[in-house]
Design a protein around this nucleic acid. Structure first.
Length: 227
DNA sequence: TCCTGATCATTG
DNA sequence: CAATGATCAGGA
């Protein structure tokens, strides 16, 4: 994507929050024009477009590094499509699930916990009846899990990781977990990655990712008003 | 209507 | 291929 606007580096999370607040109320069409980006008609062939557009406006480094979007200030950015009531329309992808090399991996130092330790949520209107260019950005929310939320995340993560380590990855369905779920995260059904089989042998399986279920993200968002 | 499994684009 | 950004869409 062309990059004609330079956004200065961020000092701290308050500055990031202010910058995000300044985007609320704008439509995606306005933000695309400001960035001089091409507007796709819909997201069918551009599923991550909204997230990358907001990253650009907030000064996140684009790329595919497995770290927080704003690693220097310890913040992960998540755009979340919402309906007119401010309720999540989709689950939220968190990170790829490690399917091998998990001996000794513990919650305290896992990738998922790090990613979710501090999240800037930006709701964006996502109903398909609204043309993409007319969808508005909502009020951002800076969030860290409280004790109860962290326990829920940890319980689900540990249950899912146990299944992965013990060779049961292929028996995990999306309904496992109260607030976290493990689902395919792949380019297509032919993608394969290494994992552990039932007899401890090496198998090839579809890459998986951790996702936050909508019931959980809705609890976070419901405490705030949308626009 | 909603959820689960499938899929799309891009970068390193 | 694996990571990033996610949403699509058929079947329950």
């Amino acid at each position: 994507m062309c990059n004609l606007i330079s956004v200065p580096p961020l000092r701290d999370e308050n500055q990031l929050l202010l910058r995000a607040q300044a985007l609320s109320g704008f439509t995606l069409g306005e933000l695309a024009m400001k960035a001089q980006w091409h507007m796709p008609a819909n997201l069918k062939r551009a599923k991550g477009w909204v997230g990358v557009l907001l990253e650009f406006h907030l000064g996140a480094k684009a790329g595919s590094k497995p770290e927080q979007d704003f690693a220097d200030i310890g913040i992960e950015l998540k755009t979340i499509p919402v309906n007119a009531q401010g309720r999540a329309l989709e689950t939220t992808f968190v990170c790829v699930a490690p399917l091998t090399g998990n001996s000794g991996v513990i919650w305290e130092s896992c990738h998922l916990r790090n990613k979710l330790s501090r999240v800037l949520w930006i709701p964006v209107e996502g109903e398909r009846q609204i043309p993409l260019a007319e969808r508005r950005v909502g009020t951002p929310l800076l969030w860290s899990p409280n004790a109860e939320e962290e326990k829920q995340l940890r319980d689900d993560w540990e249950e899912l990781m146990d299944l992965i380590v013990l060779g049961n990855v292929e028996s995990i369905r999306a309904h496992h977990g109260e607030i976290l779920q493990l689902r395919p995260k792949a380019a297509n059904g032919q993608s394969l990655t290494e994992a552990v089989g039932k007899q401890g042998q090496r198998i090839m399986t579809l890459p998986r990712g951790f996702y936050l279920k909508k019931n959980f993200t809705n609890k976070l968002l419901s405490r705030y008003f949308f626009i």
